Amino acid sequence: MNVSRLAVAGGIALSSVALLSGTAFAHVSVQPQGEAAKGGYATVNVKVPNERDNASTVKVEINFPTDHPLASVMPQPVPGWKAEVTKAKLAKPLELHGKKINEAVSKVTWTADGSKIGPGQFQQFPLSLGQLPETTDRLVLKAIQTYDNNEVVRWIEEPKEGAAEPQNPAPVLKLSAASDDHHGGAATGDKAEEQTGEKAGDEAEGGSAGHGDKAGATGHTETASAGSSDNVARVLGVVGILIGIAGVAFGVLAGRRRSA
């Protein structure tokens, strides 16, 4: 009897832990694709899981900080979803590539347009961000998630370092140290690709020339061999004819001698 009670209690405890763990980790998050360096550009995925068993997510809103504004935020098209970018005027203009920017993106909203995030599913919404600020180590992107039963979940609580995770934490994009190439090494990659292409072209051209020369040399060799074979055949043919004539003459002379 005691064993049964212990087993039931253990099962309830494990179920509670699993349930609480799932709730803690099943929140909206932002994950960079590669590196998100200060002062550079980055592509990130906004990951939105569905936490409800009886409702589907039909709207997602990501709000960008006003203390570290971003001049450029571009959403990648997601099938079944409509994206809308909202901008706001800045109290202090930004300078980007020698130009002053008077407004920045304040939020991006995705609305279901033929698709939903069903129970037990998640959806990723890619964004291109830039230019990332150089004076902070992270960007807090507050999110609002709306379900088709009109329930709204606000992921807006800013996580504090050293403190327990809040119930509805806001997505946080951590920024790495600034790099020399703010474009993520794209120029280096293009240069390497160009050099590789040139090398491949040179090798292909050189290889073709080499094969052509070799083929030409082989052709000349085969032609010379064929000519030599024809000459030999002609000489042997003439010799054979002469031997045949000599044999006939010898036979005629031998016949005359016998008759005599």
Rank of each mutant, 00 (worst) to 15 (best):
M1R: 10
R5H: 10
A9S: 10
V17A: 14
S21H: 13
F25M: 06
S29H: 01
V30Y: 02
A42T: 07
V44Y: 08
P49D: 13
D53P: 02
D53I: 13
D53L: 14
V60T: 08
P65N: 08
T66L: 13
H68I: 01
P69Y: 06
L70C: 04
V73E: 11
V85K: 03
K92F: 04
H97C: 08
K100D: 02
I101W: 05
S106H: 06
W110G: 01
S115A: 12
I117W: 06
G120F: 05
F122V: 03
Q124H: 09
S128R: 14
G130M: 01
G130I: 00
L132Y: 09
T136M: 05
T136W: 06
T136K: 04
K142I: 04
A143V: 02
Q145K: 11
Q145Y: 06
Q145P: 03
N150K: 13
V152A: 06
W155G: 01
E157I: 02
A163K: 15
A164D: 11
Q167P: 03
Q167G: 06
P171I: 06
P171H: 05
L173K: 07
K174S: 11
S179E: 12
D180P: 04
G184F: 05
G184E: 02
K191N: 12
E193A: 12
G197T: 12
A200Q: 15
D202S: 13
A204H: 06
E205R: 10
G206L: 14
G207V: 04
H211T: 12
D213F: 12
K214C: 04
A215S: 14
A215E: 13
A217L: 10
A217H: 10
T223I: 13
D230A: 15
V232C: 00
L236Q: 10
G240F: 07
I243C: 12
G244K: 12
V248I: 10
V252H: 06
L253N: 11
G255D: 11
R256I: 12
R257F: 10
